[in-house]
């Protein structure tokens, strides 16, 4: 393992030297190969997968910005390990400073650009209604979506769905009755 590790590091040293000379393939290969090692270093101090990935990306950016400081006559391992340790530690400090002033976001705070996701202010209620709508027969669900959610009048909804106005009225009536019964039961 030790021999393999030494061999890898000496290979990384060669790749970095080539990258300093402008070899993009060598640089790409080097960054891909060091990434799991960087994740391993980040995992020693961080738990949250997003923070770990942020730390890895920060280390990669730092490697890029200080790559001219690497001396190919010296081992690559200590150079890389110091950069990784410093950047991960820096991120930990930032998270510690920021932590007490921030609250984690829950699903109820989520919002999206698309209109349907924001029709109801309460995402949890939105989810329950979406589930209840999904359980309705296809015709009733479609009628409620067109008239009650998208706000079409009956003629527009009839044109969009291919159903008659009378059928839509019946479908909406039955759908609302079923939904009312369902939510009253859940209370």
């Amino acid at each position: 393992m030790g021999e393999h590790s030494t061999e890898l590091k000496s290979d990384w040293s060669g790749l970095m030297a080539a990258a300093q000379d402008g070899d993009r393939h060598a640089y790409h290969r080097l960054l891909v190969e060091v990434t799991p090692y960087l994740r391993q270093i980040a995992r020693r101090r961080l738990r949250n997968p997003t923070d770990i990935e942020d730390a890895v990306q920060d280390v990669l950016l730092t490697i890029h910005s200080v790559r001219q400081t690497y001396d190919p006559t010296r081992p690559f391992g200590p150079w890389l390990a110091t950069i990784a340790d410093r950047r991960v530690l820096d991120l930990c400090r930032k998270l510690q400073r920021r932590g007490p002033r921030e609250d984690a976001l829950g699903p109820e705070h989520e919002t999206f650009n698309a209109v349907p996701a924001n029709v109801y202010p309460d995402a949890l209620l939105n989810r329950d209604i979406a589930r209840a709508l999904g359980d309705l027969p296809e015709g009733q669900r479609r009628a409620v979506e067109l008239v009650n959610i998208q706000g079409m009048d009956l003629n527009e909804a009839a044109a969009a769905s291919g159903q008659s106005v009378g059928s839509l009225k019946v479908a909406i009536h039955r759908a609302l009755k079923a939904l009312r019964a369902r939510f009253e039961d859940e209370k």
Binding site: A19, V32, Q57, L60, L61, H64, R67, D71
Partner: peptide, 27 residues
Amino acid sequence: DIGSIRSTEDLIQSLSAATGPAGRLLS
């Protein structure tokens, strides 16, 4: 262009595409 990158793979791709000869520092 690096500021808008989301995944680590994209970042690596972008960094390696953007790289050129980087003069080594003197001792």
